[in-house]
Amino acid sequence: MTGQTGTGVPPSSGSLPTEELPPLRLGTRRSALAMAQSGMVAEAVAAATGRRVELVEITTYGDTSREALAQIGGTGVFVSALRDALLAGTIDLAVHSLKDLPTAAPEGLVLAAVPLREDPRDALVARDGLTLAELLEKGDPLHPARIGTGSPRRMAQLHAWASASGLAVETVAIRGNVDTRIGYVRSGELDGVILAAAGLNRLGRLAEATEVIDTDVMLPAPGQGALAIECSAANPELAAALAVLDDAPTRAAVTAERALLAALEAGCSAPVGALATTQADELALRAVVGTVDGATVVQMSTTGDDAPDELGRGLAARLLAAGAAGLMGERAK
């Protein structure tokens, strides 16, 4: 989606006419999902700035490597190339899935906006239109349902839930785009796969999900369902223009979730789930840490009107005191 049309907002006094301004170059990964969500952001940026927006496709290491994310150091593998392009000035802004962003703030860049969050939950695409419970109930310890996911977080919670329900499940590590993953179910190789509901919805494919999984069963990754718009700190005018796309409740929620992740010193591929929601005037934060096999999990929650980052760090401290550090297979490098 190149050359997004601006909204015709008249230029301020003394500025160049909108049509004489060069287009803003928005960096994005090449995947269908990344292109879809970046296209949505491009339209919003064009409306906010009155300038055309061009998508610039950038290949990241995470796109080209076929290894499991935990093996290639999941943290940052989908964003480093985009950030390098921002710092080099070859693009003006970049769109990321917020859950892929390392928690450490990058020097020279600013998180200009976190737009309104999509549904943060995970979704199941299963054979025969089955729900998660129905799928597992049809299996047995010798022939359990085979569910694909590349996420240790999903594996940990799926195994823990199955065990607590007296059911058996086999998790299969997979990677690939949405078509590839759903293809494992269509071909009969797997009984189901778990994907982010937000990604399916942005692709117009949420109807293919047989169940959107309740957060009492599976907490999402910190930041899941949210997007991040980054630009150079050397361009404060652009940062200010992009700030109108920021959604304050979403930013507060993901700030709490990412503060917890940072305090746990866990990478984005660690078996850590977290979700913050606004309740009245308070923020409620739930989190889970577990072993990938689901044998041991620690789950806690908190509410308060503290600053979101303080709320996240406080809950992380409680999780660590309860032994969470020993459960995480992926620690920040």
Rank of each mutant, 00 (worst) to 15 (best):
E134T: 14
E54Q: 10
H96Y: 15
R153A: 03
R258Q: 09
N177F: 09
L69I: 00
E211Q: 03
A156P: 02
R205F: 07
D214G: 02
A209G: 03
T277R: 06
D84Y: 13
G294E: 08
P23H: 07
T215R: 08
S31D: 02
A324N: 04
M155R: 03
S65G: 08
E208W: 01
L285F: 07
A316Y: 01
A34N: 11
G27C: 10
L69Q: 01
A123T: 04
P141T: 15
V288M: 13
L136Y: 14
G3F: 11
L315P: 11
S80F: 06
L86T: 08
P222M: 02
L219P: 00
A133K: 10
A287Y: 04
V217W: 00
G129W: 11
A34V: 06
A284F: 08
L116M: 09
A112C: 11
V297L: 11
T2R: 11
G150N: 05
I194A: 03
T149N: 10
E19P: 15
E43W: 05
S165Q: 14
E118T: 13
E134R: 12
G267W: 01
L116W: 13
D246Y: 12
D92Q: 08
S165A: 10
E57S: 09
L55A: 14
A105T: 15
A47K: 14
R29Q: 14
L93F: 11
M35C: 10
T7L: 09
L16P: 15
G223I: 01
E57K: 09
G62Y: 01
P308L: 15
H143G: 12
A44E: 12
L109M: 10
R318Y: 13
G73F: 01
E230F: 12
D84Q: 12
G192R: 04
N201F: 03
A226V: 09
V41R: 04
E230T: 05
P120A: 02
R127D: 05
A34Y: 14
V79N: 06
A81T: 13
A164I: 11
A307Y: 13
Q157W: 02
D214R: 12
S163N: 13
V292R: 01
A262W: 09
S13N: 10
A123R: 07
R30E: 12
K99V: 05
E208C: 05
A240G: 08
V77R: 00
D63K: 00
M218S: 02
T18C: 09
S80V: 15
T2F: 13
R258P: 02
E134P: 07
V292H: 01
S232P: 07
T7N: 07
L283I: 09
A48N: 15
G73S: 02
A123C: 08
D100Q: 08
T296K: 06
A145W: 10
V292Y: 00
M155D: 01
G326N: 09
D92R: 03
T291Q: 03
S31R: 07
N201S: 09
P236Y: 01
T277D: 04
A234Q: 04
L319Q: 10
A113F: 11
A252R: 03
S232G: 06
Q157G: 01
S187K: 14
A133I: 13
V79S: 11
A145R: 14
L109P: 02
D216C: 06
